[in-house]
Amino acid sequence: MKKFEVNTAEATQAIGERLGALVTAGDVILLDGDLGAGKTTFTKGLALGLGIKRNIKSPTFTIIREYQTGRLPLYHMDVYRLEDGSGDELGLEEYFNGDGVSVVEWSQFVADELPANYMKLSFKRDDADLDSTKRTITITAVGDHFNQVLEQLS
């Protein structure tokens, strides 16, 4: 487990960009944290690290956005609206076992669908001021592959 303290959106994005250069096909990255804590900002950086130039938008209402123009495809998922656990109907396993990188926001709502190995990032506001940009990003690696990726990320 590693912790990163960030104070700007650019710093959050930079961590994502570094990780984007390290991920491989089939990798699953889970993003958890409050609304507005930096999950989509991180994903924008990850996309840059994959060579994706398109604007990354939150998939809140579409649930899954696909970006195919980088080194690997990026599947950006926001499963917040699946609180009832209907993730199996989306075919998440096909994405997780596919040719791209899957980023899942609010992963607790599809916990039963998640693979055994993944990287989880938890975004936490460091104070109660909603205008503050201070965050702690805690990264946990599950599985040998992700432990190696986390070591390289430092």
Rank of each mutant, 00 (worst) to 15 (best):
L31Y: 01
G100W: 02
V28S: 04
A47T: 05
P73D: 09
T140H: 12
K134A: 05
V6L: 14
N97V: 02
E105H: 01
R81E: 02
K44V: 07
E93R: 11
V103A: 08
D99W: 05
F96E: 01
G16I: 04
V110E: 02
G49K: 11
F123A: 03
I137D: 04
D112T: 12
D84T: 15
V104A: 10
E93G: 09
I139L: 13
G143A: 08
T133K: 06
Q148A: 12
N117Y: 08
D32H: 12
G51P: 15
I63L: 13
R81W: 01
A21F: 02
S86N: 10
K134Q: 00
A21P: 05
D112P: 03
D99T: 05
A9H: 00
G16N: 03
L82C: 09
L90N: 03
L121S: 02
T8D: 11
F96P: 02
L31M: 12
I137M: 10
M119T: 10
D78F: 11
L19A: 14
A11F: 06
G45R: 10
L22P: 06
I29H: 07
T133H: 02
V79T: 00
R18D: 05
D88E: 15
K44Y: 12
L46H: 07
V6R: 04
G87C: 00
E105S: 04
Y95V: 01
A47F: 01
D131M: 15
I52K: 07
D99V: 08
L19V: 12
K2R: 14
T62L: 01
R125G: 10
R54S: 14
E83I: 06
V110A: 08
L50H: 04
R54N: 15
S86K: 14
D84Y: 07
P73Q: 07
G26S: 02
D112F: 12
E66N: 08
D131C: 09
E113V: 11
K124I: 02
Q108Y: 08
G49P: 07
A14N: 06
I137W: 04
L31H: 14
G33P: 09
K39H: 14
G20S: 11
N147E: 15
A37Q: 10
L90S: 14
H145I: 07
D32L: 05
E5P: 00
T12G: 13
Y75V: 05
G33F: 02
A141S: 09
T41C: 15
I52P: 13
N117Q: 09
G45F: 15
V23D: 15
V6C: 11
